[in-house]
Amino acid sequence: MLLEINQLYKSFPQADHGQIDVLKNINLEIHEGETVAVVGQSGSGKSTLLSLMAGLDRQSSGSLRLREQEISEMSELKLTQFRAENIGIIFQQFYLMPHLTALENVSLPLEMFGNKDHQKRAKEALLQVGLSEREQHFPHQLSGGESQRVAIARAVVTRPSILLADEPTGNLDNETGVHVANLLFDLVQTTGMTLLLVTHNMEMALRCSRQLTLQFGTFQ
């Protein structure tokens, strides 16, 4: 078992001193190599679930275990390290560092942890996403699709156990979106990586091995 979620709750305080439960009694198991799509309407709690899985936020109660380690029990420092080693994240808006080239963006997570092969592995990752000719380009010189491919290369370059993607084609036109989705699924298939995809796009969700619908904070 790669990921195991039990009775997970997440609530946020409100201005009127009350609180809103965004996630309620979530239970989920994801196996290694599985591709899972979480769909749901805006405000259903998809991104909150993703943020908890990525260790970017802490649950209010319940358990969230990745590789048999309880994420909520980790210190911030340990969690940061654990995330860097095990989790790759792809954002809707790419979030590349504007002052770094494509190659530097991809090698950044490796370089940050003193990996001596960062340059070589980043080049390999860019090759995998078909951008080896654009490695010296800066984000503003890349199209939306290219930027997202660089972001994908950056997410996979550390060879994480699980790839978390938050609406990866949400900022792209249809044609480019399909192209990027193809690339993502090919990559996951080739590397045997686990994928958890949060999306509105049912077409893309259906390409995953499992689809979960989140509504009012619980799986339907």
Partner: peptide, 14 residues
């Protein structure tokens, strides 16, 4: 600074 804000659908007060 919260990396959480990078996610597209952000709920609650962080």
């Amino acid at each position: 600074v919260q990396p959480l804000r990078l996610l597209h659908e952000n709920t609650g007060n962080h």
